[in-house]
Design a binder for these strands. Structure first.
Lengths: 216, 216, 216, 216
DNA sequence: CATGAATGAGCGTTCATTCAT
DNA sequence: AATGAATGAACGCTCATTCAT
């Protein structure tokens, strides 16, 4: 499953009918946008980084914004939902009969996803402050999440009395924020190489905190 | 205290030798940068919003970047530390003899601060992805925080056995992320009017979660 | 009167709040558009010709099209109507009691106008093929002409039996085309220096032809 | 004869060694140049309209200008002269023994030609303002006209005393301008469908005016 | 101090043209 | 012969910055 996640963006790249040069353009843009920001990256920067002429950039992409969309739209429309929906199978095949194992699975999964897609996450984080459209798209996706298998599993645990009767959206908010608190520093520092051991440690600490808080 | 926070930026404004017109420039820039982003705001935008000539902007600020610095530097160098140091007095005058009250105080305090300074926070959040300097400055400030009164108070509770033996930086990370999880959506949505009642509710839920997690 | 015509465009220039540099830009554009055509003239060309920086061009004019409008709009909205309406006074002060004198006056007048404003006419002629808006504006102005003093005077002559009962629009069409047949070659050849003697000769030949045709 | 005129351009097309695709390119260019103008028509527009790849356009035509030349050169070098020279036969076979019939024939003939070739005329009219070469070519052709059968016929009428002793070039100027005054509005309005009845009416009015002017 | 016209480097984008397939 | 991806010069235009008033 972890491998699947890692490949979702690349798969979605292969789905498109972009030439090799165009994919280089997209890769270069991903790098530049994520470090310098969209506005501070010139199309000349992109062309130089990709090793193509500036005109080539516009062969496939309508305009500079189009490159950003080609990066963010799959992220929003395809990658995120895929992640969310993939749980269906995971949950079916993998009967989580205790909260601890379930949280461990979900959190580790998401950490890997975020760290694998660091650049997109950075770009997304920068753009969401400027674009109401992006913000609304994310709200919608989060809404879907609340109807999805994660929410259903959490509810099941609640009904069994294994989780406190906190509203599901709030539960997800806490899961999310705790996860992010480990991942975001790495993303901000652009630490490319986070080991599986680190992720395992972070996951354990997250699950402990989420389950029991900070009191003894 | 709440009032103090609200005024810290304004106070730090008064400390500078900026003319009234220059302050208008700064206020206008604050608004524009926070909504449109630094790059997408032109000096003409600023001049128009501030009701001054474009040249006037350059009377006090060396360049456009200088305006951003004039907004973010006090935030980093003065506002943030002031907040941190103010605790000394607060803690002295206000003996927190249980964890619950302490967390309630700290969290409510910070929520108000973040919401009062929404615009700076928005600008800060956007820029920190692009500027290593900013990132390092924040790391330094967070380092100071770890030597400050909040950390000391937490350690005291730990020594008394009222808090689990989680490393202090990690404790602060959890406090921070939980708080942010309530505040950030409001900031993203640019909800100007968050009531005290809402903040009280958010604080309560945060403290409950931080103390006991999600299990019964 | 002839002097008036000569000055109408310049007057309309003075009415605007254009700086000296901007007027230079307009003059340069007038030259370049009229010889090379609008599309083949670059804003760099204009800036170089005007001796200003390219940015200066955009200080007063929203875009390149705006310069063309600043040249053509007065021509359509102000210069042409002014010419048409000025007849009122001319006719009042100048009782034309025979067709010959009237035509001589009208045709000489228009020839001078067209030759004085050669560049605008050239630009206008090029653009009218591409712009339906321009075409419609001219139709409207020609419509106004048919309600104006020239048409009235012609009708008076018709009622007196001094002119054949040809429909007024057709009469004006013949006046116009005959006049143009003398003026257009000069404009195409960009003959700047057409003498008053030439114009007098052209006028006489035009009036002769219009009155009697080519038969003996 | 009318049919001949209609086909002259097509005939001249057949003379060339253009493939079917290339002819489509030329047709498409004719349409686009005449409506949007040469400069505002991109080679991509042409390729799309013609349903070929952009590279194909350059198979037969050296460059974009080459397409314009392929449209205008036959118009100047072959179509116009052919029209002029065809009179030889026409005049031979058709003895014009009065001015009225001759003018009627000549004018109707030219009106049809201009209306049939509206698009070329539009392109020609736009380009002649920009290209001295084109202007000189036309001057040369008009010079030939003055040595041609029309001029000879007119001179014959003059010698017989049926036409006033106006210089032949001037006579032709009047014929031309009167004809144009009917045809140009239709061309500007891009009225594709001018009926033979309309042309007959226009011709009659033209001839009347040319012969007798506007007096009774 | 404040102004705003002037600047020119640099932006995003277009497009005529080339050339390997 | 036909293609269309690739090119890069040149375009229209923006904008941070300067400076004479």
């Amino acid at each position: 499953m972890a491998n699947n996640i890692q490949n979702i963006f690349n798969e979605s790249l292969q789905d498109t009918n972009l030439s090799d040069k165009q994919k280089t353009v997209l890769k270069a843009s991903l790098d530049l946008f994520s470090t310098k920001g969209f506005d501070s990256t010139s199309t000349k920067d992109i062309a130089n980084s990709a090793g193509v002429a500036e005109g080539t950039v516009y062969q496939q992409f309508k305009n500079k914004r189009g490159i950003l969309d080609a990066i963010l739209n799959p992220f929003i429309d395809s990658v995120l939902p895929k992640i969310v929906l993939d749980f269906t199978d995971a949950v079916k095949g993998n009967q989580f009969d205790n909260v601890h194992d379930f949280l461990t699975y979900v959190i580790k999964n998401r950490m890997k996803f975020a760290l694998t897609n660091q650049n997109q996450v950075r770009i997304f984080a920068q753009e969401i402050f400027k674009s109401n459209k992006l913000l609304n798209q994310m709200k919608k996706q989060l809404g879907n999440l609340l109807d999805g298998p994660v929410a259903q599993q959490l509810q099941k645990f609640q009904e069994r009395g294994e989780i406190a009767p906190i509203p599901i959206p709030r539960l997800i908010q806490f899961l999310f924020s705790t996860t992010v608190s480990f991942v975001l520093p790495a993303i901000l520092n652009q630490q490319g190489n986070v080991t599986n051991e680190q992720i395992d440690g972070w996951t354990e600490q997250s699950v402990d905190f989420i389950l029991h808080g900070i009191t003894l």
